[in-house]
């Protein structure tokens, strides 16, 4: 029996811009098993957030399928989609701008419950809100507080409580810890991992921070300019990265140990190019140290090099 909760097949999302087609997500295929986490890493502009938003249909896709429990959600009607939305949730990056400043904590958490008309009596709803607050570690005295009274970590906990309110199966975390300080970031990561264990959640975890993604993911997908360049179980990816871009990403992280200083780090030259009307060939070729002639002409294919380890590279 297949244990796949969600399967993305050849998903494409192009945006029309005055300059041409912007290939935000270009032919990405992934699947996530129930209770597992897929980490998506890449630099700004690589299409990782667009991927997340297209999977839950906040963007209409240009091409491709997303199978949730075996059904293609792009065939769903508006009504079906609304039902589905309760089992797929998203946690946003910025806890400062994703909460309505004029609502209290309890109202913010109640919103999904109200709009889906879950509870008839006020009592039941209040009990549910309180238990949710406890789950995410918000103390009860904050029940009537407003977001501006809280720090970033607590605000992000509200975001998590909101996402959990509908008992979802699948949560997309779009950079949930990037706006937080390290000590708070670690608390939130631990919380997300505990919740996953307790509630059997499945995560798509989007981040630019490789060290964060290593902690929380079972599998990692590396994206560059809208395309998947490498996908592997987390251990395999860190021990044995193959694609030059993945290697460069790993080499670029400043490590908190001494003795690394002054060594020329394994970085890459140049900067990310525009994904508008990309030329054929490997999109990384211009920044790649190992680029051959073939790389500029032919699109590399995403192939399996060892078990569950996929790479799109000519070398």
């Amino acid at each position: 029996m297949s244990n796949k909760l969600i399967e993305v097949k050849n998903l494409k999302k192009y945006f029309n811009t005055p300059m041409g087609n912007l290939h935000a997500v270009d032919d990405v295929s992934v699947s996530i098993d129930r209770g597992k986490t897929l980490g998506v890493v890449g630099e700004s502009g690589c299409g990782k957030s667009t991927l997340g938003k297209t999977i839950i249909r906040l963007h209409e896709p240009t091409e491709g399928e997303v199978l949730f429990k075996g059904e293609n959600i792009f065939d769903y009607s508006k009504k079906d989609m609304k039902k589905l939305r309760s089992s797929i949730q998203i946690i946003f990056q910025d806890p400062y701008s994703s909460l309505n400043p004029r609502m209290t904590v309890s109202r913010l958490i109640a919103e999904p419950l109200i709009s889906n008309k879950i509870y008839k009596s006020k009592r039941e709803m209040e009990d549910r809100i309180k238990s949710l607050m406890e789950t995410v570690g918000l103390s009860g005295r904050l029940y009537n507080a407003y977001p501006h009274e809280l720090d970033g970590g607590r605000r992000q906990r509200i975001g998590i409580a909101r996402a959990l309110a509908m008992n979802p199966d699948f949560i997309i975390c779009d950079e949930p810890v990037s706006a937080l300080d390290v000590s708070i970031q670690a608390q939130i990561l631990n919380l997300l991992m505990d919740l996953q264990e307790e509630l059997e959640l499945t995560y798509l975890f989007i981040t630019h921070d490789l060290s964060v993604v290593k902690h929380i993911s079972d599998e990692i997908l590396v994206m560059y300019l809208g395309q998947s360049v490498e996908k592997a179980p987390y251990k395999e990816l860190f021990d044995n990265p193959i694609h030059p871009y993945t290697k460069a990403l790993l080499g670029s992280i400043p490590k908190p140990i001494l003795g690394e200083r002054g060594k020329i780090r394994n970085t890459i030259k140049g900067e990310i190019f525009t994904p508008i009307n990309p030329a054929s060939g490997c999109r990384f070729a211009k920044r790649c140290d190992y680029a051959k002639e073939k790389c500029y002409v032919e699109d590399p294919v995403f192939i399996e090099v060892s078990e569950n380890h996929f790479v799109a590279c000519h070398i």
Binding site: S183, A186, S211, K214, H215, L250
Partner: peptide, 24 residues
């Protein structure tokens, strides 16, 4: 110590972090 415990370490294979309790 708390700061170091909060950083996800790339070289050690450990799943849980040891953050500082509470907030600033």
């Amino acid at each position: 110590e708390g700061l170091f415990g909060s950083i996800p370490n790339l070289d050690i294979d450990e799943k849980r972090l040891n953050p500082i309790q509470g907030v600033m």
